[in-house]
Design a protein around this nucleic acid. Structure first.
Lengths: 154, 154
DNA sequence: TGTCCGTGTGTTATATTATAACTAATGAGG
DNA sequence: CCTCATTAGTTATAATATAACACACGGACA
């Protein structure tokens, strides 16, 4: 209601993008969904469902049951706003929301940060690999673990 | 079971390979480890730890506690004889034991079968992606889900 | 105006996946 | 024989995830 123009203007790009997509698709970006998106974004690294459950409980001053968070994560993942990091049982903001995310997740084993990069050449290589094996590709999980530039320097 | 001596002599290639590696490295391929390898191989699809626990319990006629199986899986994975399929919380025989497995796992969403393929071109693409991001790569998790040739035909 | 319905959230209980910490058996080398 | 290292067994519990049902709320529309 009293949302100032200034605040509106400072809305991060990723959130604007997601709001636009929800508008287009008739999806509701509720308070809970926003809150969970914000927690994931702020985390600096992928967060587990239980980290979100705990954070949310703290923020709300009362316990939050797992299904509340898992359902919200399902929504966010299904709609491509969040990516599940399989090798960590964790969740990260998707850098290319809307598109089926063909991104590669680079996960630093030292600082825990995850960065999603999109690489058409790699993508093409994946498609060729699948095609050569006679495989009809639906979903990709590409997660690379190692040291990010910053941690490698240190 | 009609397991003949002839069959023994024809010990499957994967098992021979693993035995040889254990010999080289001074590792013990114990009965439990063999049994779990065999169960995974026979499964036709990656097996979860609890599927192994249940199968083993049935085979031995008495309960088997999780740590027994998880420890064995740790050994097999650490030594590159088995691969963990992250997107399924399951375990599959590694097709390239001994080498750090840079394989790609192709998982059929219909029949559940998983096939590991090695593709140098894809591997090179992964390395380039990591290098371009200033990332020192340690470990790869590449899992592609879709329909295998057989299931796609049906 | 009221009720029906779809969507989102809350609640309770439970299933599934995984590990910590300690004990016991076994076998190789002194 | 003793000692040590490795493997496996046992007990308890932690961490991750889902099923099933109840409640709230707002929009469609007779």
């Amino acid at each position: 209601m009293t949302q100032s123009i200034a605040e509106d203007a400072r809305q991060p790009a990723w959130l604007k993008r997601i709001e636009a997509l929800c508008g287009e698709r008739g999806l509701q970006l509720t308070a809970l969904r926003r809150q969970i998106l914000a927690m994931i974004e702020d985390g600096g690294a992928p967060l587990t469902a239980y980290a979100l459950i705990d954070g949310l409980a703290k923020a709300q001053g009362r316990p939050v049951a797992p299904p509340t968070v898992y359902r919200t994560l399902d929504f966010l993942v299904e709609n491509g706003f969040v990516v599940r990091v399989e090798s960590r049982n964790a969740f990260a903001i998707c850098d290319h929301p809307g598109h089926d995310h063909h991104g590669v997740m680079l996960i630093c084993s030292r600082c825990g940060a995850a960065r999603e990069v999109d690489d058409p050449a790699l993508d093409a290589a994946l498609l060729r690999t699948a095609a050569r094996a006679g495989f009809r590709l639906d979903k990709r999980t590409v997660e690379l673990e190692g040291l990010c530039g910053r941690c490698a320097a240190a």
